[in-house]
Design a protein around this nucleic acid. Sequence first.
DNA 1: ATTCGTTATATACATAAGAATATAACGCAA
DNA 2: TTGCGTTATATTCTTATGTATATAACGAAT
Lengths: 131, 131
Amino acid sequence: MNEINKGKNIVNRKAAYKWKARIWLEGEEGTFLGYGRVVLLERINEFGSISKAARSMEMSYKHAWDLVDSMNRQAPEPLIKTAAGGKGGGGTKLTVAGKQAIKHFRTVMDRLYEFLAKETGLSQDGLAKKT
Amino acid sequence: MNEINKGKNIVNRKAAYKWKARIWLEGEEGTFLGYGRVVLLERINEFGSISKAARSMEMSYKHAWDLVDSMNRQAPEPLIKTAAGGKGGGGTKLTVAGKQAIKHFRTVMDRLYEFLAKETGLSQDGLAKKT
DNA sequence: ATTCGTTATATACATAAGAATATAACGCAA
DNA sequence: TTGCGTTATATTCTTATGTATATAACGAAT
């Protein structure tokens, strides 16, 4: 038990409350990268298609496409490369920059989690998973 | 420049993006305490009234009242003590538990800020201020 | 009793975010 | 040139969140 959790303290009664946290990167038009977008990128990388990635996350295709578009518009170089038509109807792949973005975001996120776990006794599921 | 910000890296081009972060405490019916709720508590403590606090934040009275109600319902002991009617029409004060909650939340928040500043070069205004 | 400004409560309205749906464009393969 | 499944785009429908508005209850002071 560290300094924060010491003593009688409403905020830190672990049984009743859970600390949650979220980080994201903001660009000129709002969110650029957040946890949800990173998961979407990971699924695109896995399935090779925006529509399949969206289905796997129970997200509408339109929403997924909007997110992809938002990321590509804000990034100095595209994170995602799409192809409409062609073999199999087309598909979508991550660029090198896209794969790097995933990796770096997860690195910072993991460090945040470690920090919070130490500071507040946060359990694994305490990390917010949306957006 | 630390390990995270080292090298060529889309995620960490400080000129273009800002890291943002948010923490909150979750109880059985959703958010229990977040930055916005803490500010509301601070304003109530300052003005002695939910309605004045709400006006000072350009928040509707109903919304402020709902938040106060949500906090009191979820806390094991009330954070806020209201009085309808009486001298000056009534008013609202924080309990000792309420004042403690503010202090503890801000402590964790400040530590999170320090951590992120070190990890990502986050500037003061990078901390998300809403909810 | 009346007055006062507050808390307490309900209802209707506005706005935004995402879901659902539909359709066109695409380009390779058969 | 037809078929295929994808990307691309527009439109409509829900749903959630907060705003706006109105009204009643409250209780001490006058």
